[in-house]
Simulated scan of single mutants.
Amino acid sequence: MFTNPVINSVLKNEGGYVDHPNDTGGPTHWGITEKTARSYGYTGKMVDFTKEDAYLILEKNYWYQPGFDKVYAIAPVLALELCDTGTNMGPVVGIKWLQRWLNVFNHEEAHYADITVDGKIGPGTLKALTQFLEKRGTEGAGVLVISLNCSQGQRYLELAEGRTANESFVYGWMKGRINL
């Protein structure tokens, strides 16, 4: 069942049960909030929520639905970053960052055309990513991951500055999520 290496990595990073008083998401297990678990019909206590249940939700909502499986076929390291970011912040957030970075890395459209920043992995995003990697190679994939981490780190800073209770989490977010 646990055949997707990216989802397995996310599960490992998320860890087990957490119910921190400063977390607005409430009880969370394997990265799945109680609200999300309930939307899938789970009625038990979150402390008892299984890794198998989490895997199925993560694979559906944070892998296939946003199209990270398509990114994986082009750049596995980038798919891992996007899936992990998506689990933490929602898939649309990471996809928009990817689209924005692809647009500014296209050398004023000399390498490929700008794409719409819509938070969806569609043909335009996949084409731009492919063209970017054709130009920049493996190094380019690494630079994209670093770029996404920069955006994610900035977001964590804003979250902590905007709500002091988030200071409880910001060190762990940076340690566990930036530079996977």
Results as ranks from 00 to 15, higher is better:
4 N>R: 05
6 V>W: 07
7 I>A: 06
7 I>H: 08
11 L>P: 03
11 L>S: 09
12 K>N: 02
13 N>H: 08
13 N>G: 04
14 E>T: 04
15 G>N: 01
16 G>K: 00
17 Y>C: 00
19 D>P: 12
19 D>C: 13
20 H>D: 15
24 T>I: 15
26 G>F: 14
27 P>Q: 14
27 P>T: 12
27 P>G: 11
29 H>P: 01
29 H>Q: 12
31 G>V: 03
32 I>H: 11
33 T>P: 08
34 E>Q: 15
37 A>I: 14
37 A>S: 10
39 S>F: 09
40 Y>G: 05
41 G>A: 08
43 T>P: 02
43 T>N: 12
44 G>H: 10
45 K>C: 08
47 V>E: 15
48 D>N: 09
49 F>M: 04
50 T>K: 04
50 T>D: 09
51 K>N: 04
51 K>I: 07
54 A>V: 08
55 Y>F: 15
56 L>Y: 13
57 I>N: 14
59 E>L: 14
61 N>G: 10
63 W>N: 11
65 Q>G: 06
65 Q>S: 14
66 P>T: 08
67 G>K: 13
67 G>L: 13
67 G>E: 13
70 K>D: 11
71 V>F: 15
72 Y>T: 02
73 A>S: 10
75 A>H: 10
76 P>F: 05
78 L>T: 01
80 L>D: 07
81 E>V: 07
81 E>S: 08
84 D>P: 03
85 T>K: 03
86 G>C: 08
87 T>I: 10
88 N>W: 04
89 M>K: 04
90 G>L: 09
93 V>F: 13
93 V>A: 05
94 G>P: 06
95 I>G: 12
97 W>R: 04
99 Q>N: 06
99 Q>G: 05
101 W>Y: 09
103 N>D: 00
107 H>E: 12
111 H>M: 11
112 Y>F: 13
113 A>R: 09
113 A>M: 09
114 D>L: 02
114 D>E: 03
115 I>M: 03
116 T>G: 07
116 T>K: 13
117 V>F: 00
120 K>G: 06
121 I>H: 10
123 P>R: 10
123 P>F: 11
123 P>Q: 11
127 K>S: 15
133 L>P: 14
133 L>D: 12
134 E>L: 14
136 R>G: 02
138 T>K: 08
141 A>P: 01
144 L>W: 03
144 L>N: 07
145 V>S: 01
146 I>C: 13
147 S>R: 06
149 N>K: 00
149 N>A: 00
149 N>V: 02
154 Q>D: 08
155 R>I: 00
156 Y>R: 02
157 L>S: 02
160 A>L: 00
161 E>G: 01
164 T>C: 01
168 S>I: 02
168 S>Q: 10
169 F>D: 12
174 M>E: 04
175 K>Y: 11
176 G>E: 00
177 R>Q: 02
178 I>Y: 02
179 N>Q: 06
180 L>Y: 04
